[in-house]
Nucleic acid binder design. Structure first.
Length: 883
RNA sequence: GCGGAUGUGGCGGAAUUGGUAGACGCGCUGGAUUUAGGUUCCAGUGCCGCAAGGCGUGGGGGUUCGAGUCCCUCCAUCCGCACCA
């Protein structure tokens, strides 16, 4: 009677065995020189307290890679920690009166337990949480170093203010004009904030993308677009005429500001002779200055500000503007003056917040010019068009051509004209070539409690100075209250007051904390080089970094993944880190989401999967017995109630089945739909493997087991039919090896299914040769199963009498002579259609193959007496006969 | 609008460099074992056709002895960015 595999017993047993033997501890870098290293990392989780299926898939992938690398003889670092600062802890404090620290560490304990149930091959000895004082102390030291190196600074600026979270957001954290977490429309506020100078690395971050060959193109493109490099020119337009009002406008921006030239950025200096107006952003300083005296301009500003930032709003908003009454002189022709408008389509945040309008060659400018009846003067002539009758109608011309109507630029190509224009502007001191970026410096101040305190002191006499090293870390006070909105550190009665370390006068602590994205911008380095004396042990980290394979969600394409690349460079320039190539993540894999069907009741209420069942082919809501509606397949989310509970799956099916299914059904970069049928299939597979091991259990002795690892001994000679099974095994092991290396877990799993089927079929065969071939195959299979179903692999290994832990075993040795065949089956086509197949020797000469193909019964019948025009033989592949 | 992908049976998906389309799983059909089964096992399963055979990888065209794969063109879906001067 065959036994059943019971994951609830076996999984705990083997997890305990791994822990006892401590087999996943990272080898010391010093002992690993000369061996290939592999740093495998999955994006560390936020400790929400509950594991979800997305986690299972993410960490299963990383673990499969890590276990495979170990089996391939590499030294592996595979750590885990917690991205533990952040707003949910404060919300919990506000709602339930529990302290954020307590809430967070309780969640970590709960989640660590769930992670351990998954049987991941993690080195828990390197675990940390970013809210550990040791971690944020190190982060404060990094911050002070950045500050000393001029990479952190304070400035007053208009910032994104999330009115719900009552804190500032970075540009990267604003999505469609709304806070990335709260979803509330973001407001603009003028505040003094800390910034990190990520723009100093704009070019470097862009160039570095080229070297990241093992990153998805999509992410590289997104980062390149985010950095948004463009080449062009700054042009200074002298004001020749201005209304009296702005002469009195010294009250706004300084005495002579109103007479300063207007600075414009353009990528098309070649079209300068086509300029017919200047347009300023609605909140450009000059617009604001004039609005103080012109009610119509003030009204225009108001209107422009009230238009939403959503896509539809922008698309529908008509181009609107107002003439500011200012006139400027054309830099290349004294006799031309242009009007200065303020226009709602000019962005204050890009370039200089001012443009010159060239309606003939820019659609937006053309729309604007048509509306306000401004001149349209074409200056680029398409090839083949005639200068005399080339006109712009409703569409601006943005293509290639020759410059005309443009004085000294006439007849040049666009590229030549750009250079010539810039040269002339520079010579006249009216402008200069300029590379512009969309990327802005990273605003990192957050008006929050549960984050890393910014180690700065504000002294009225000495200014803003760093907290002295001996006083680090600046720790968070425990006695805080969350009974009102805003920053508890600011509300604290005493915490912020202290004396200045330099003049001993009264001073104040900085009460803002750092954006939690900083916490995750260097954690990978801390894992690689833990240290008690420095943020990172530079030598140890230099051995392990860069991360060889990083696995996580694509949602961090321009947040975490860009910030980390910046930190790697900035820390390196501060002497805190050394990474060959400067890139923190050499390989990146962005996995797809876990989805599930959604269900609704007849009344439109979302129903959980456990609330419905099929009865007689109809979906029924169990509670009411009424029919339910099957909805879209969507990402698992609480609001849609289509979440499958991890604990329930782990309890009834075990970690191996959950891991297996999460990797089996779809390519890892795509979404996978969680289905009950799929989970059942995975569970069936586990039992089949167990049944296979069972067939060897009776006969297994330790003496036999000694030979299990080598493979091949006692097996048949090459003439025996069992050789076919041996070929299947060796090929499968090679195929699975390739699948895991290439991140194609789904095809590796398909190979395992086939392999089990082949071994199963061979049970019908008797004799010592077949027994040996099966024994070899099952031992190899179990070894190859380790990265996917590690617990089952251990149990099966023990069942067949294997010695030691299979998790520490090397990948099976593959006999190359069994992977290649001496005979091959070639399909034979006639005129490109398959009509039969022939078996020939692997190295058969072409004429023999041709003869065999023509002699094949089906082929011969099909050809009949038609003359053969040509025969194509692709050795080892195919034969095609043309008649 | 710009950029990145994707499109293959009833479903998820396989198919190194152009070389047997549909591996593997799910589902379905038939059969066996079982007191029973939502267990296990065996067989079948792209479409049309009685068959011979024909048709088949989003549509249309092309290159080639041969195209899911390469080229042109159109369509659809998803993701990201978006009045970026």
């Amino acid at each position: 009677m065959a036994s059943r595999y019971d994951p609830s017993v076996e999984e705990q047993k083997w997890q305990a065995a791994w822990a006892r033997a401590d087999i996943f501890r990272t080898p010391a870098a010093a002992d690993s020189q000369g061996r290939e290293k592999a740093y495998i990392l999955e994006m560390f989780p936020y400790p929400s307290g509950k594991l979800h299926m997305g986690h299972v898939r993410n960490y299963a992938m990383g673990d499969t890679v890590a276990r495979h690398r170990r089996a391939k003889g590499q030294v592996v670092l595979h750590p885990m920690g917690w991205d533990a600062f952040g707003l949910p802890a404060e919300n919990a404090a506000f709602e339930r009166g529990v302290h954020p620290r307590e809430w967070t560490y309780q969640n970590i304990d709960a989640m660590r337990g769930q992670f351990k149930r998954l049987g991941l091959s993690l080195d828990w000895s390197r675990e940390f949480a970013t809210c550990d004082p040791e971690y944020y102390a190190a982060q404060q030291r990094i911050f002070i170093e950045l500050w000393k190196h001029d990479l952190a600074y304070r400035k007053s600026s208009r910032v994104n203010w999330d009115p719900v979270e009552m804190t500032v957001l970075a540009n990267e954290q604003v999505v469609d004009g709304k806070g990335w977490r709260s979803g509330a429309p973001v407001e603009q506020r003028e505040l003094v904030q800390w910034f990190l100078k990520i723009t100093a690395y704009a070019d470097d971050l862009l160039d570095g993308l080229k070297s990241l060959e093992r990153w998805p193109d999509k992410v590289r493109t997104m980062q390149a677009n985010w950095i948004g490099r463009s080449e062009g020119a700054l042009i200074w337009w002298d004001i020749v005429e201005a209304p009296d009002s702005i002469r009195q406008a010294g009250d706004v921006d300084g005495p002579n500001h109103a007479r300063d030239p207007i600075e414009v950025y353009t990528t098309r200096p070649d079209t300068l002779f086509g300029a017919s107006f200047i347009a300023l952003a609605p909140d450009h300083p000059l617009t604001r200055s004039i609005a103080g005296h012109r009610p119509d301009v003030a009204a225009f500003m108001q209107d422009a500000a009230s238009i939403g930032t959503s896509e539809e709003a922008i698309e529908k908003a008509p181009k609107l503007g107002v003439d500011l009454g200012i006139r400027v002189r054309h830099p290349f022709d004294d006799t031309i003056t242009l009007p200065v408008w303020s226009a709602n389509f000019v962005l204050s945040g890009y370039g200089t917040g001012a443009i010159f309008g060239c309606p003939a060659h820019d659609q937006r400018d053309l729309d604007f010019a048509r509306k306000y009846d401004l001149p349209v003067r074409p200056v680029v002539l398409p090839d083949g068009a005639e200068a005399d009758n080339f006109e712009i109608a409703a569409e601006a011309y943005t293509g290639a051509g020759r410059i005309f109507n443009s004085g000294f630029l006439d007849d040049m190509t666009i590229e030549a004209a750009k250079s010539a224009a810039i040269a002339r502007l520079s010579a006249q001191d009216q402008g200069e070539g300029k590379v512009n970026y969309r990327l802005r410096d990273w605003g990192v101040s957050r008006q929050r409690y549960w984050g890393c305190p910014i180690p700065a002191i504000h002294c009225p006499a000495c200014g803003t100075i760093p907290v002295p090293d001996a006083e680090l870390p600046v720790t968070l006070p425990d006695d805080v209250t969350f009974d009102r909105p805003g920053n508890p550190l600011e509300h604290h009665p005493t915490w912020k007051y202290r004396t200045c370390p330099e003049c001993q006068g009264e001073a104040r602590r900085e009460t803002d904390t750092l954006d939690t994205f900083i916490d995750s911008s260097w954690y990978f380095a801390r894992f690689a080089g833990p240290s008690e004396t420095a943020p990172v042990d530079v030598t140890e980290a230099a051995f392990w970094l860069p991360v060889d394979q990083y696995v996580g969600g694509v949602e961090h394409a321009v947040l975490h993944l860009l910030y980390s690349r910046f930190f790697a460079r900035a820390m390196s320039d501060c002497g805190l880190l050394t990474i060959t190539g400067d890139e923190p993540f050499a390989g990146l894999f962005t996995q797809g989401m876990v989805t599930h069907e959604t269900y609704k009741s007849a009344t439109g209420k979302w129903l959980a999967p456990t609330d419905v069942e099929m009865r007689g082919g109809v979906l029924i809501e169990i509670a009411s017995g009424a029919p339910a509606i099957r909805g879209q397949i969507e990402k698992m989310s609480k609001s849609k109630r289509n979440v499958v509970d991890c604990d329930a799956i782990l309890s009834s099916y075990g970690a191996d089945v959950a891991r297996w299914f999460a990797l089996s059904d779809s390519p890892p970069e795509r979404d996978v739909e969680w289905t009950q049928a799929g989970v059942d299939g995975a569970a069936r597979f586990a039992q089949r493997v167990w049944a296979l091991a069972d067939t060897l259990a009776e006969a297994a002795t330790l003496a036999e087991a000694g030979g299990l690892r080598g493979g091949g001994e006692g097996v048949a000679d090459t003439q025996h039919p069992s050789i076919a099974l041996r070929r299947t095994s060796h090929r499968a092991a090679a195929a699975i090896d390739d699948s895991i290396s290439g991140f194609r877990f789904n095809t590796g799993i398909a190979t395992l299914y086939e392999w089990v089927g082949a071994l199963k079929k061979a049970e019908a065969e008797a004799g010592p040769e077949w027994h040996a071939a099966r024994r070899e195959g099952i031992a190899m299979l179990v070894t190859c199963l380790v990265p996917f179903m590690p617990h089952l692999a251990e149990a099966a290994w023990a069942r067949i009498g294997g010695a030691g832990l299979i998790s520490t075993a090397p990948w099976p040795v593959i006999d190359p002579s069994l992977v290649t065949q001496d005979t091959v089956t070639l399909p034979v086509q006639v005129n490109g259609k398959r009509r039969g197949e022939v078996v020939v020797a692997r190295d058969a000469i072409v004429s023999d193959v041709e003869a065999a193909a023509l002699a094949e019964v089906g082929v011969a019948a099909f050809i009949g007496d038609q003359p053969v025009k040509k025969i194509i033989v692709v050795p080892g592949r195919i034969v095609n006969i043309v008649v």
